[in-house]
Amino acid sequence: MSGRQEAKLAVNPIACSGHGVCAELLPELITLDEWGYPLLADIPVPAHLARQARRTVTDCPALALLLTKPT
């Protein structure tokens, strides 16, 4: 288990149009800044949120939210 990196959330800021769906679906890790763009927690996605994180990525209307692959 040593040295294994967990998946992290990332956003493609060019694709992101500030829908805000991600913040609704994953409020534990995503909030919106004062302009409506996502602020992502800079921590690996905890195991109990992994499934919800994957769903949130799928649900982004702009396909801008990403999960970096765990190594």
Partner: peptide, 9 residues
């Protein structure tokens, strides 16, 4: 002007 934070900030 492509990214919301930069365009606004």
């Amino acid at each position: 002007g492509q990214c919301g934070p930069c365009r606004n900030g």
